[in-house]
């Protein structure tokens, strides 16, 4: 496991872009960390690392639950379980189809329903250390 201390959004994105190089079709990345700890920012870096075209900015999928970004080296599926209350609500998103799909799945607030994830899942933990300091463990 690697531990990074990021001192800016740009640094978090760089860590993620590097991490993106290790991913393949069917990779599942589960992100865990408080509000404002850099999860969405990390996904922006992943998108960059996967060469997702920047015509559609990567933004938080909290409301719509899934954002899909095609067009990169691999399609990127960006989930957010923040506002889901029951595991059934998450299951209703046909998660298995995505886990076994042709792209990279990255899930914010994954620890809300940890049992829904396949064994191959890579877990990434974020910690809010201070106004301009975040810890990323992956």
């Amino acid at each position: 496991m690697s531990v990074f201390i990021s001192r800016s959004a740009e640094e978090t994105k760089k860590v993620a872009a590097g991490f993106a190089l290790t991913l393949q079709a069917g990779s599942v990345l589960a992100l865990v960390g408080d509000l404002g700890s850099g999860k969405t920012c990390f996904v922006q870096g992943l998108a960059k690392g996967l060469a997702v075209p920047d015509t559609i900015p990567v933004s938080s999928p909290t409301f719509v639950l899934i954002h899909e970004y095609p067009g990169g080296k691999l399609p990127l599926f960006h989930f957010d379980f923040y506002r889901l209350e029951k595991a059934e609500e998450a299951q209703a998103l046909s998660l298995e189809d995505y886990w076994e799909g042709n792209g990279v799945c990255v899930i914010e607030w994954a620890d809300r329903f940890p049992k829904l994830f396949p064994e191959k899942t890579k877990w990434v933990h974020f910690k809010f250390l201070g106004e301009n300091e975040r810890e990323i463990r992956c």
Partner: peptide
């Protein structure tokens, strides 16, 4: 222009929850 991170209504909801 578009949001680079959270939508406006999402920020409202998250701060309300806080």
């Amino acid at each position: 222009g578009a949001t680079r991170d959270d939508a406006c209504g999402e920020a409202y909801d998250k701060i309300a929850k806080m």
